[in-house]
Amino acid sequence: MSTPTTATIRRAVVAAFDEIAGLLSNPEVGPALIRGDDVPLAGIELDSLTRFEIIMRLEEEFAIELDDDEVLAQTSVAGLVAHIGARLAGRAA
């Protein structure tokens, strides 16, 4: 199985955040995400259970194991996308 591209991972990350936390309709960050800009994760207020729900969606999407502190360590959506990309690349290597 080929490793998903950064664009594919980003689409999946944004979709998970949107479906679970309605991110694209959030006026603070939605327009920037639709434009393809990066968004700081600190600007997205999520309770821990919502975050776990997003993590589970991403785990299932990419068949990886992802811990909460790994996600919390990322400062932006692009950082999270890169982290998942690195995990997938590590698995493919």
């Binding site: 811990d67 909460d68 790994e70």
Partner: peptide, 8 residues
């Protein structure tokens, strides 16, 4: 652990 993800 508070950090362990759902899969783990």
């Amino acid at each position: 652990s508070q950090a362990l993800g759902p899969a783990r």
